[in-house]
Design a protein around this nucleic acid. Structure first.
Lengths: 164, 164
DNA sequence: ACGCAACTGTTATATCGTTACATATGAATC
DNA sequence: GATTCATATGTAACGATATAACAGTTGCGT
């Protein structure tokens, strides 16, 4: 389907971001169409804001944008939109930051992992083959049913290291 | 040194918790002794509270305990204690919960991973051989310097599954 | 006893997220 | 078209998590 290499849309690699953004947006639209989900104005607006760059955005940053756009005033509007986007795999929450990024891989989120720059807050999405073996082994051994795995690497991207 | 199996102190396995707790506390004391760190009353109190069980505790739960004990009244006291404990590897922050657990492995925290029960909030600590290969490969490829890796599996422990 | 660094006390505030309930809208059916 | 129900939005109030800033205290080497 897509012959680009795995890191083509990596936040920390030069890439055609317009294409990156449009592809993610189109994938979300297709998915909504296919599954009977409603990409309402507020939801689409939040998704677009997240896809503008690979920088993680907080809920309140997004709320400010919604306010400017006249699409809502109170926190619930943005948290509802984010719940929808995250639940359906169109965005991810970066636990480490309490912030959100658009999903650029369409991967099912059991396999998403992130490189999070602590300086510029840009986030690259990686796709894991599987959760770490040690973790699944211990889960298995103790009867723990894993539902979701969070893998986040915090550090400095090349550019931010150069700036420092 | 320690001939016990890797999961002996797993939160989701029956184990001698008194021994588990005392071992962790003693390890912290030794470490402080060795590195010239001060395990002050507030810090020791918070560590003991965290080691009481394998349940993740929020900063404000801990603050309530500190208040009862007359060791402080305002949030900074507990956040400072937690900063100290986390910085020195005596406790971990569970990002998924915004809460804290005592460290029972003394492992350096680049290698810690967690099984987090979303029902009872008990947390088992696992030790990773290494961060997932896909992640380090992508970091390498893009010049991203990884400083810390968070691996957290959320799910249901055996007991909570049985209860449901 | 002195001086410095580390630690603690206190006030205030920033940041992140939810509850609860009222209202509106879309789309299937009568 | 009117009815109905599920889904989505509007709004006010609040709860939970965390930090800033600065003053005061304590431990400890000299």
């Amino acid at each position: 389907m897509n012959h680009a290499s795995a890191f083509d849309m990596d936040a920390f690699r030069p890439h055609d971001h317009g294409r990156c953004r449009r592809a993610a947006r189109a994938a979300a639209e297709r998915e909504c169409q296919a599954r009977g989900l409603r990409l309402t104005p507020a939801r689409a607006f939040v998704l677009d804001a997240l896809l503008e760059s690979h920088r993680a955005m907080t809920a309140y940053e997004l709320l400010d944008r919604l306010r400017e756009a006249g699409l809502g005033k109170q926190p619930p509007i943005v948290y509802r939109a984010l719940d929808f986007l995250v639940a359906n795999g169109f965005a991810h929450r970066v636990e480490r930051l309490g912030a959100f990024v658009g999903c650029v891989h369409g991967a099912d989120d059991h396999r998403a992992a992130f490189l999070v720059c602590r300086s510029c807050r840009q986030v690259a999405e990686a796709v894991l083959e599987a959760p770490p073996a040690a973790l699944t082994a211990q889960a298995e051994a103790t009867g723990f049913a894993v539902e979701r795995v969070t893998v986040e690497a915090e550090g400095l991207c090349e550019r931010c290291r150069a700036d420092a």
